[in-house]
Amino acid sequence: MRDRVNRLMALIIQACALSSVLVLMGIFLMLLINGAMLFKEVSVFDFLTGMTWNPGAFDGPAYGALSLIWSTILVTIGAMLMAIPLGIAMAAFMSEVAPRFWRNLLKPLIELLAGIPSVVLGFIGIELIGPLLQKYLGLSTGFNALNGSILLCLMALPTIISLSEEAIRAVPFSFKEASYGLGAGKWETLIKVTLPACTSGLIASSMLGLGRALGETMTVLMVTGNALQFPHGFYDSVRTLTSTIAIELGEVASGTTHYFALFAVASLLFCLCLIINIAAEAIAAKFRYRQT
């Protein structure tokens, strides 16, 4: 009897595990199949290298996703350039340097930051960050890639901080002891021993933060201005892959070229996330290997 129950439970758990894989595969296939329909009418090359995206244009549709791809990359890179150093520094400060009082104060605050809905952050971007950028950078408008990057940095920070902190805490005390024993101070130990010892963990946390930034829609949509132009820098307005889907999916009739084009954009986004995850795994594995 017990044996049978055990076997049943094993079966159920297997089914659960399998179903999540199936759902994932299903989503990917749906995106891919629908997206592929676009290429009956638009060549893959044009889709990937076309500079103009305007399916509802006055003088005929254009399905060039390059500016969307570049917009996404631009905003994400900007966010990571800020979030990774800041996040790791905060994590290091909290786990190694800060007195207990500060740690106890900061940790819940950072968790709170993670809980802010993206729409609220978007609102902050419009009302606060945009005008500040206008004022201090002398820009004519705050609707640009930089604003999006700053907000995405805020969104990725909690992930990066909490995971980095865990990684830093996991560094064996014996390393620190050895460093102190050789006459190193707190900072020297942190920078020369502790952080290098958990590089793989720090990379993993950064990549997860990156994934969060890449897939975020609402905040970016609200503050980047969504112009269709090809962006040349952080002061330009951008329209990311996610924003494009969010803006256009509501007005598109199913089964049209435009509809399939949005699926192609979604597949692109999926692939981008996949590449980042695989790269993260590979980099992390390499560092792990060097340490053991």
Binding site: S174, F175, G183, P196
Partner: peptide, 21 residues
């Protein structure tokens, strides 16, 4: 200072603890 002292009074620990470098 503790750091100066430790440069003159070195220590070897129970478990070998080389840095992962």
């Amino acid at each position: 200072k503790a750091a100066e002292l430790r440069q003159k009074v070195g220590m070897v620990f129970q478990k070998p603890n080389p840095f992962p470098q």
